[in-house]
């Protein structure tokens, strides 16, 4: 049961941390429509993560008698307990970096949920089926921006190329299962992410061609996020995200 809970927390955490990053664009987007677009995507992501957290809390409480909630899981766990992908915690940078991060993640989510909707775990399957419709829009939006920036001006192309180079080393982790994930794959509950890699690379390659930018060499890939070993950036994110509950424990609206 612990392995299932860890797997669900991993799915929830990646969404939550990317949500916290994206939310910083609220009121700062390049133009109003795009400000609204990135915050709408962020709203979908937080909604999905709430579904995962609620499910994890239910399982934790049933097996351990604790009283976790979606809020306690988001606000009261420490850095090493977070199992998000390293990609999600990377900085917003400029608009190009935010777009590239969203594009890599949304495309991964799309292939992931497409399979997860057939999971033997009914609740995970239901969350995935619901989320897939939303993620399809995110892929459309972010891939159009990849093309617009890559095949745009000299400056936009340079910025996107830099963004891709910065983020690329964090993409490999998506396709390397953690131990808890492998255990759940064996039970037909988790998606075998190794199998997603080819589809993901193929799509990325075709969008990169359209965006007229080069695919980076398959160099060294950073790992650790899924097991709670993060870049230094996560601590800063959590100190913002958890500030209120840490400073005023049990504060409510």
């Amino acid at each position: 049961m612990d392995q299932l809970i860890n797997y669900i927390l991993h799915l929830a955490d990646s969404n939550l941390i990317l949500t916290q990053r994206n939310a910083a664009w609220c009121g700062h987007g390049p133009i109003l429509e795009q400000d609204i677009a990135i915050t709408n995507i962020t709203l979908d992501l937080i909604g999905q993560s709430r579904n995962f957290y609620q499910y994890a809390a239910k399982l934790i409480n049933e097996t351990s008698g604790k009283e976790e909630t979606e809020d306690s899981l988001a606000y009261l766990r420490t850095e090493r307990e977070f199992k998000n992908l390293l990609l999600a915690e990377q900085e917003n940078g400029d608009w190009a970096q935010t777009i590239a991060r969203q594009f890599f993640y949304s495309l991964y989510q799309y292939f992931l949920y497409e399979k997860l909707q057939h999971s033997k775990d009914e609740q995970l399957a239901a969350i995935a089926a619901k989320s897939l419709k939303e993620v399809t829009y995110h892929v459309n939006w972010s891939s159009e921006w990849m093309i617009r920036l890559g095949d745009g001006t000299t400056e936009s192309k340079e910025r996107l190329t830099n963004a891709v180079a910065t983020l690329w080393p964090y993409t490999g982790e998506m396709f390397l299962p953690a131990n808890y994930e492998s255990a759940m794959i064996a039970e037909g509950i988790a998606v075998d992410v190794i199998e997603l890699k080819n589809d993901w690379i193929k799509k990325v390659t075709s969008f990169f061609e359209e965006a007229t930018i080069a695919l980076p060499e398959n160099g060294f890939m950073q790992t650790g996020g899924k097991n709670g070993v993060h870049t230094e950036k996560l601590g800063y994110i959590l100190s913002d995200l958890q500030y209120l509950q840490r400073t005023y424990p049990n504060a409510t609206w």
């Binding site: 429509e33 795009q34 609204i36 677009a37 709408n40 995507i41 709203l43 979908d44 419709k133 829009y137 459309n140 939006w141």
Partner: peptide, 28 residues
């Protein structure tokens, strides 16, 4: 005009004839 509108369920369009922008309730 934009795949994302004033709420999560809407996209923003514009009419080429009467020129009015309008919300479209996205097919979901």
């Amino acid at each position: 005009l934009s795949q994302f509108g004033s709420t999560a369920c809407k996209a923003l369009y514009q009419c080429n004839d009467c020129k009015e922008p309008f919300d479209y309730f996205k097919c979901h």
